[in-house]
Design a protein around this nucleic acid. Structure first.
Lengths: 361, 361
DNA sequence: CGATTCCATGGAATCGTTTCCACGAGGTAC
DNA sequence: GTACCTCGTGGAAACGATTCCATGGAATCG
């Protein structure tokens, strides 16, 4: 950790630190002679400016904070990737934090990011608004919400409008004859959990389907709650013949649970999940999904944040969602024998269509 | 961004900055009286120490850098998660960077991390050793390699010994009667690519199977090359009846390609992939994998790095791998009709066992 | 040719914190 | 009662960069 400072570069180049600094930070007030001497001295010593010192003096740190709810969720992994690539394009590094769907870890990271004086924060908030989040806003640290929002907080955000996709999904299932559609919901403490649930409820009513509250299971966006949801819903006296799951991780848990119970996806039970993950298309039968663009979301979030950093107050952006039909929702209500909760199904003829998508992919 | 400094806290508390600093950083040389006065002043002002200034003065930044090859690879997403959790336990934040399997992006991040003066770096190196990596070592910045190593660089590392798992897999396939096993390899520029390929070659010889070089396709650990590998291998005049794939992303590409070709996994073609991803167990048929513990790898990497930071020179750690048999490798060589490259198979009777694992999971 | 502008340069202040050093008050030991 | 510690405290230096300001030489203009 032998630190090479600008002082030594200046000494080797035979100029003052001021001149060395000017050359190294691209200040035009330098002569070609000293430019070249400083440049070669810096190269020879393999000099890297100390970002701490630089940030201390100037106002900028050239770092963005990205706090996601769960890195292991492929949706957020993709988001992290696109945000990072967009940020690097603008000369920012991204400090990634993982809240693990827990408010305390989120706050811990938020405090860290604040004290590291990042130039701005992109946040997928967990919970209903902690002190740390309020502190963030009170200090006027540029912040953008992504994927989720917090009611009553006036922060630019980029979110998905799940309504269209969910309406399409419910309609699609209704057309196939399903009248009892189960719903594994996200937590009502999150905006996406509430919004998607509201859209589902509305769509069910619009299509004249059963609005039995027992058909809704409230999960927490993690895999285990998807399993629990399947367990609860298929254990009903009148189980659903189709299932809508509000995010990809819960869908994974749900599918695992269906496997264990011997319930055949797309045969005994139709299923649609929110979030389009590459792997979902590879399942057999392939999983129908409500898709939205992670790439757009990441790029937009960075755009908005840069505008806020530059003193602007950009309007929030809402991105569309869309249903992609695949084989998992091919079963009609009449073909479903979904009461089979726990009783392993007998081997059927294999499902044929396995890669049947509304749009090419 | 109204910055509240320790000076204002000291003023409000009626003490000097020195005393305020001592209280806030836990220095015992403080009286209970000033302790409480400073504490309440800091709370009232919602003071957060400036991490830049703190790091500038002291030697520590309390930040670790983690540079992974690809965040979207579930293996590395899991690794990022475990590393981050282990680090936070020791009071470190983790700055995550994503090399995207590209040496130039890796170097860019490495430079950033160096200039931000992280206390240590955990690196899954891409390529054969760039100037930036050499510079890292020359500066004696605490570094640990994870998952991969670089030949000739004396850096503590934590890696997986794939040999045992690969040997088990080849043997398992040989016992089922397969004599022509295809291999989709990782890049030979990475240590894991070389090691796993060597283990495969050795195991093939040991089991007296065909060592036809045409059975090996060299990919780059990304999904597209898995597709390309399937295309190349199944296009052979004598195609393999079983396939071993060297990482999870290439496995995803391979499976997608098999779907498109109508080749049935576990029926027309047996398959085993390296890396155990939760989703692989959900495929139908479930995918046999060579498993290794991401959690152990992440925790160990942090442990080693902390030892290096404390001046130690810990020995490298090699973790074991193990075969988990599921339905995708259930087909015997005789049942395989794998020449069927491109000709869609007729619907068969459904594969029965779909969740058949050697160990509970 | 003298006055003025331009320009590269170096000295020094600055950012916010930690820590060295000196100092004075109070307590203990002879 | 003097000598010696201990302990809390405040002033000031230090960390490594940027940037304001003053300076002196060259170039330009009348």
């Amino acid at each position: 950790m032998n630190a090479i400072t600008i002082r030594e570069v200046a000494a080797l180049a035979g100029v003052s630190v001021a001149t060395a600094s000017r050359v190294l930070s691209g200040n035009p007030a330098t002569s070609p002679a000293s430019r070249s001497r400083v440049a070669s001295a810096a190269a020879e010593l393999d000099f890297r400016p100390n970002a701490q010192a630089r940030a201390l003096r100037g106002a900028r740190t050239n770092a963005l904070g990205l706090l996601v709810s769960d890195v292991r969720n492929p949706f957020f992994a993709d988001l992290a990737h696109t945000v990072e690539q967009a940020a690097i394009l603008h000369g920012y590094v991204t400090l990634l934090g993982n809240a693990n769907e827990r408010a305390d870890q989120q706050d811990r990271y938020l405090d860290t990011l604040i004290s590291r004086r990042v130039d701005g924060i992109i946040l997928a908030p967990v919970g209903a608004g902690s002190d740390s989040i309020r502190s963030l806003i009170a200090r006027e640290i540029p912040t953008v919400f992504v994927d989720r929002t917090i009611a009553g907080m006036d922060v630019p955000s980029v979110t998905t409008d799940g309504t269209a996709g969910i309406r399409q999904a419910v309609e699609h299932l209704a057309v196939a004859g399903h009248t009892r559609i189960g719903y594994i919901s996200g937590p009502q403490a999150s905006s996406t959990g509430r919004d998607r649930f509201a859209a589902f409820t509305r769509s069910v009513v619009e299509n004249g389907l059963s609005a039995d509250p027992a058909l809704v299971y409230f999960g927490d966006y993690q895999a285990a709650s998807g399993s629990a949801g399947v367990h609860a819903l298929l254990g009903l006296r009148e189980p659903p013949t189709a299932l809508l799951v509000a995010d990809s991780l819960m869908a994974v848990g749900a599918i695992a649970s269906l496997h264990d119970r011997g319930v055949r996806l797309g045969v005994d039970l139709a299923m649609v999940a929110f979030d389009d993950i590459e792997w979902f298309a590879l399942l057999n039968p392939a999983l129908s999904v409500i898709s939205h663009s992670v790439a757009d979301m990441g790029r937009t979030a960075v755009d908005l944040l840069l505008q806020v950093i530059d003193g602007g107050t950009p309007a929030s952006v809402v991105l569309p969602s869309e249903l992609i039909v695949r084989a998992s929702s091919a079963s009609s209500a009449s073909s479903a024998t979904a009461g089979a909760a726990g009783t392993p199904a007998t081997p059927p003829t294999a499902p044929t269509a396995s890669h049947n998508s509304v749009r090419t992919h």
